[in-house]
Amino acid sequence: MHWLSNITVVLLVLGSVWVARSAARSRFWRESAIELWRRRRLAILVVGVFVLIALLDAISWIGGGEGVAAYQPRTIVDRIFQPDTFREASYSAPLAKVAFYGGQPLDHPGAHLLGTDILGRDVVYRALKGVRVALLIGVFTSLIVIPLALLFGVTAGYFGRRLDDGVFFVMTLLASVPSLLLLIALITVLGKGTLQVCFALGVTSWVGFCRLARGETLKLREADYVSAARALGVSDFRIMMRHILPNLAHLVIITFALTFTGLVLTETILSYLGIGIDGSWGQMIDQARNELSRTPVIWWNITAAAVLLFVLVLAVNTIADAMRDIADPRTRRETQ
């Protein structure tokens, strides 16, 4: 099982490098990227750090360690934190020397930067593990959704008629069920689990992408250069690949960024409803919600998850805003 995920990660990284390299050949993308970097340096660096953590937490292998750990695949983050031994009996405050309740001395006094949770697990470790889950939700879902949405949206918009009617009806259908209810229904019938949740999230966010792709294709189909290409006898497939898809790319990227934050935020709601993904920040927040009403307040659990979640979402949101400004000069004039 862990080999499968390792291969996926490697393929993803190679794929990203390939996409970045081919994008760098176009002047438009190069200039947009430079402009984006100029405007949102901090946010990009933040997202970079998150991606790095997720990568460190994605490749796993068996070996090393003692006891049970020796037979389990463990990631680099696991190997750094050694969660099997680096733990306490129950709650301990950040950098505390004694347990939160009872006051027994800790096994690792002063070593838990953000304390430990009810089961004595290190909070920094758990929060960092959440990075991978958050990126998994976003990337995995998008990997399912974007190709399908582009396929249906572009062909529907390009060919029109029956195909368009069909795709449009399916879109209307899925859009007419309030998304949270649809999510709940889907996860209830499919069962809980990472794959199921990602699939359900994919279904609900598919409509947005597909509508976008269809609408833009409808517009582009009427563009002069597309008519010209058609008049010259260029095949439909080639027109879609060469003239329509590249012009959708920037919209897809912007929508991807906005959908990503939406997905991560939605997962917290699902976690509250008990149908979230294991190890997510949403679950950490949900599990910690009663800790705030205790005296003295146990704040570090919820704070760690909340801050990381907020920073990631804010960074991606601001990057998406900047991308929209760069792509659409009309709004650019407005903000300058």
């Binding site: 934050t261 935020l265 949403g282 907020f310 979402v313 949101n317």
Partner: peptide, 11 residues
């Protein structure tokens, strides 16, 4: 707007 949009509803 941007800040409130970046906070989870649950929070």
């Amino acid at each position: 707007c941007v800040v409130t949009m970046s906070v989870a509803g649950l929070l």
